[in-house]
């Protein structure tokens, strides 16, 4: 298991972060600090507010009140400075069916002004060069997810923000993802990883934050006692993990 690397610098800092959709409160006064070099798991049932929080970090959405700071920059005021240095696997994304895997990998590389070793990226994700030559329209869900992960790692980002990265992955894909996260953290990358599945977070993360009903219930270090983390998760969450996501439309809550 990974040791907690705390250089004292904050990679992500949320101060009283709140997002309301009309009457509905998606996230409520969240305070959180994630240290540089840390692998942080953001854990909660579907509809708890994980994606809303990540959307604000990535400036897809704007907070109703409070602030989000990423790598020292305000998420809403300096999105370009942030996005130059981070890699993102968003939730609810789509790729371009007519472009090939290689073309997808070249996109972030050219926008970030870096050269990529595409074959190394492919190798890490278990994609072959023949796969990368094909249009993404022919890919399976898991292959798309692995390619999107690969796009996030292009340019050796300082921070990886992964929203439900295990969704759509088969057991082999999940083990590739875990290895990738561990490699990135070893390299010094901060990883912020959301999931509704405890095991996926527990095996790769140094600390977890448990969120439910839009509130951050607790933050705990992950040591080798996954079982007590399970109790923690059960104690702090009311919804069942199989609930359909409903909060993003603003119509319901967990």
């Amino acid at each position: 298991m990974l040791s907690l690397v705390q250089s004292g610098m904050t990679a992500i800092r949320l101060d009283s972060l709140t997002k309301r959709y009309g009457e509905y409160v998606a996230i409520d006064e969240i305070d959180l600090s994630v240290m540089e070099g840390e692998a942080f798991g953001f854990l909660g049932p579907n509809g708890a507010g994980k994606s809303t929080t990540l959307d604000i970090l990535l400036d897809y959405a704007r907070p109703s009140s409070g602030t989000a700071t990423v790598l020292g920059y305000n998420a809403q005021d300096n999105p370009r400075e942030i996005h130059d240095r981070i890699g993102v696997l968003p939730e609810g994304y789509d790729l371009y069916d007519r472009l090939t895997g290689y073309e997808h990998l070249r996109l972030p590389a050219s926008l970030k002004g870096v050269d990529i070793d595409a074959d190394r990226v492919l190798d890490r994700l278990g994609l072959s060069q023949a796969d990368a030559d094909r249009p993404v329209g022919t890919y399976s869900t898991g292959m798309r997810q692995r390619l999107a992960l690969g796009m996030a790692t292009v340019g050796d980002p300082d921070l990886l923000v992964l929203d439900e990265p295990t969704s759509g992955l088969d057991p082999h894909g999940i083990s590739l993802l875990k290895r990738l996260v561990i490699e990135e953290v070893t390299r010094g990358t901060t990883v912020f990883f959301s999931s509704h599945i405890l095991e996926h977070v527990a095996e790769t993360c140094d600390r977890v934050g448990i969120i439910d009903d839009g509130r951050l219930k607790t933050v705990a270090a992950v040591e080798d006692h996954t079982s007590s983390l399970g109790e923690l998760f059960d104690r702090h969450t009311s919804g069942s993990p199989s609930e359909p996501p409903g909060m993003r439309s603003g119509s319901g809550g967990a």
Binding site: P79, R80, H83, P90, Y93, D94, L111
Partner: peptide, 14 residues
């Protein structure tokens, strides 16, 4: 609508 805008905005593009 498709979500590819979220991929583009995840990169350094305004």
């Amino acid at each position: 609508a498709s979500g590819s805008l979220r991929v583009l905005l995840g990169m350094p593009l305004s």
